[in-house]
Design a protein around this nucleic acid. Sequence first.
DNA 1: CGAAACTATGTCCGCGACGGATATATGTCA
DNA 2: TGACATATATCCGTCGCGGACATAGTTTCG
Lengths: 113, 113
Amino acid sequence: MAGTKALTPAVLHILLALSAQERHGYGIMKQVESDSQGKVRMGPGTLYGSIRRMTEAGLIRESDRKIDPHLDDERRVYYGITARGQQALATELRRYRQVVAVAHERSLLPEGA
Amino acid sequence: MAGTKALTPAVLHILLALSAQERHGYGIMKQVESDSQGKVRMGPGTLYGSIRRMTEAGLIRESDRKIDPHLDDERRVYYGITARGQQALATELRRYRQVVAVAHERSLLPEGA
DNA sequence: CGAAACTATGTCCGCGACGGATATATGTCA
DNA sequence: TGACATATATCCGTCGCGGACATAGTTTCG
């Protein structure tokens, strides 16, 4: 698709997961699952591949967060959303909202469920 | 991504365009553009490739609609959404709505714009 | 204690969607 | 007649997806 380069679903979900706070890879995976009520599950291939591409694109950055090793698994690598990432997220969310709005107009979304 | 095989953005937009009425390829292209306020533009590669895959998957079907050739371009091939297509669309729309809801909770979507 | 399950990060690679370029031809309008 | 929009269709390079696999520390519980 064209336009202003739409974000892939994987990228959108990761940005959404990082919008509230910094998280490490595995934490992102779990947050995506909870944000989507368990409907979206992200495997390691998608997760770490996306993280690499997003870091290269400047949407997220590795955090220098260092918590007391006794209280936090040392293997963890934390990531945070950048200003550019926030902007990309906002743009994509507007696109999502537009789709939902059109769906509403056509009565494609029953109130409940 | 996993879950119940998420629809690609292209497929979602095409289903949305066909949700109101049957349309031919080029008409779908224009409707997608208008539904998205010009933000999503679908090239012929994506359009006809998606139409083929969606027909094979039973999400849409070629319509037998035959309008008076004098009043309608004979080259046109009309497509309609199937019951399966409607179901897939509804499922995906719920996923979209969920994303928008989460975004709202985190105040990521200013009222206007 | 020991086994199992969970946490955590990462690579590899085949599959398939995307989407621009290209081709062809008709319709419309000035 | 020339230009542009309509309309369908194929080709193919690029790239994201995502399961499988690898590795290893941590927690839990009988």
